[in-house]
C-alpha cells in the first residue's frame, strides 16, 4: 500500500537565495492517509520546503518528485491543494465566487462546482456564508475559506502553511477535525506549524531548524526517545545535539526574516529550558541516534484526534522517512 509510492519525495534538497543557504540536505517523504507536520520556529525554512513541494521554488540542488513528477510540475498541480500562509483571497468577491474561480482554474466543471462548493463550505462551517463578501469575513472565517479552496478539488496532496495561525482554539480544533477527515479519505497532508500543541495532532512530525530536519518521527516517539515530557522539550533536545545551530539563528528565507524564533514568549521558555539540568547533552547524543533511526519504537499514545486516522499509515510513514 503506502510503502510503495510516496506522494512527495525530497532527497538531498538544498535551496539558496543569492548567497544565503536556506535549506540544506532536506530528505522527506509524504504519504497518503497521513498528516505530516513541519514544526519549527519562524525562519527555520518550513515555508521554503512547502514552496518547493508546491512548485513555487526550484531546489538549488537535490531531487524533488511530487505526485510522480519532477518540477516544473504539470499534471501534478491538479492533484495539489495549497493553502498559503497569507490570506490569499479576493476580498471584493463573495466566498462562492472565490471558490468558483479557483475551482475553475483546476478545471472543475460547473456541475461539479455546484456540488462541491456547498460541501466544502459545510466542512469548514461556512455553509451559510457563501453569498457574503469576503471583505466582511472575520479572520477565522477567512482562514476557513482559504482551507475550503485548498480542499475544493479533492487533491491527493494537501499542503497547508500555518493553517491555524491567528485562530481561536475552537476554530483550530474544528480545522484539525477537517484535516483528519481528509487524511481518513486517503489524502496526504503536510502542515506547517510553530505551535507545539498542534504538532501533537500530526501522525508524523518533522522538526526543522536552520534549514535542516533535525528529527522525523511520530510525536510520541520524539518525546519518548528524548526522554522528555513535552514536544517543546523534545525539540530543544534535538536542537542542542544538532551541529551548527545557533550560528545561523538569524538566517532564513527572505519571506521569513521577520522573526528568528517561534515567538518572544516561546523563545524565552526555550532559553529557560536549555538550562534544565535534568536534560544532559550526553542523553541527547544517545537519543539522537534513535530519533533519526525511525521505526525502532512501537507506535504509541495516539491522541483523540489521531484515532480517526489509519494507524498503519502513520507507522509506515515513519519507517520510510
Amino acid at each position: 500500500m503506502l510503502a510503495a509510492e510516496p506522494l512527495a519525495e525530497l532527497s538531498g534538497v538544498y535551496k539558496r537565495f543569492s548567497k544565503q543557504e536556506v535549506l540544506s540536505l532536506i530528505d522527506l517523504k509524504l504519504f497518503s492517509g497521513q498528516i505530516t507536520g513541519l514544526l519549527g520556529p519562524s525562519g527555520a525554512g518550513k515555508t521554503t520546503i512547502v514552496n518547493i513541494i508546491v512548485g513555487s521554488y526550484l531546489p538549488t540542488a537535490g531531487t524533488v518528485r511530487v505526485l510522480g513528477e519532477t518540477p516544473p510540475f504539470k499534471n501534478a498541480r491538479k492533484q495539489l491543494g495549497f493553502m498559503p500562509q497569507s490570506e490569499a483571497l479576493y476580498l471584493d468577491l463573495t466566498a462562492n465566487q472565490n471558490l468558483r474561480f479557483f475551482g475553475s482554474l483546476y478545471g472543475m466543471s460547473k456541475s461539479r462546482l455546484d456540488q462541491k462548493i456547498p460541501e466544502v463550505l459545510n466542512l469548514v462551517r461556512l455553509g451559510d456564508e457563501g453569498r457574503k463578501l469576503v471583505a466582511d469575513f472575520s479572520g477565522g472565517m477567512k482562514r476557513r475559506l482559504s482551507l475550503a479552496i485548498a480542499l475544493l478539488h479533492d487533491p491527493a496532496l494537501l499542503v497547508l502553511d500555518e493553517p491555524t495561525i491567528g485562530l481561536d482554539p475552537k476554530h483550530r480544533l474544528e480545522l484539525w477535525r477537517g484535516f483528519r477527515e481528509r487524511a481518513a479519505s486517503d489524502a496526504g497532508l503536510l502542515i506547517t506549524t510553530h505551535v507545539m500543541d498542534e504538532a501533537a495532532f500530526c501522525d508524523r512530525l518533522l522538526m526543522v531548524q536552520d534549514g535542516r530536519i533535525i528529527a522525523d518521527d511520530s510525536p510520541e516517539k520524539l518525546i519518548q526517545t528524548t526522554n522528555t515530557q513535552t514536544l517543546e522539550e523534545a525539540f530543544l533536545a534535538f536542537e542542542n545535539q544538532s551541529p551548527n545551530l545557533n550560528q545561523k539563528a538569524d538566517q532564513g528565507p527572505p519571506g521569513e526574516k521577520t522573526a528568528a524564533g517561534f515567538s518572544a514568549v516561546e523563545n524565552h521558555e526555550y532559553n529557560a529550558d536549555k538550562t534544565d539540568p535534568g536534560f544532559s547533552a550526553a542523553e541527547n547524543q544517545n537519543q539522537s541516534g534513535d530519533a533519526t533511526d525511525p521505526g525502532v519504537s512501537p507506535f504509541e499514545n495516539q491522541n483523540q484526534l489521531r484515532e480517526s486516522a489509519s494507524p498503519g499509515a502513520s507507522r509506515e510513514g515513519g519507517q520510510d522517512a
Binding site: R77, Q85, L91, F102, L105
Partner: peptide, 13 residues
C-alpha cells in the same frame, strides 16, 4: 500583496 498570486501560481493555469 494580497497573497492570491501565491495561490494562482500553484494552480495548473
Amino acid at each position: 500583496t494580497g497573497g492570491t498570486m501565491e495561490r494562482l501560481l500553484v494552480t495548473p493555469i
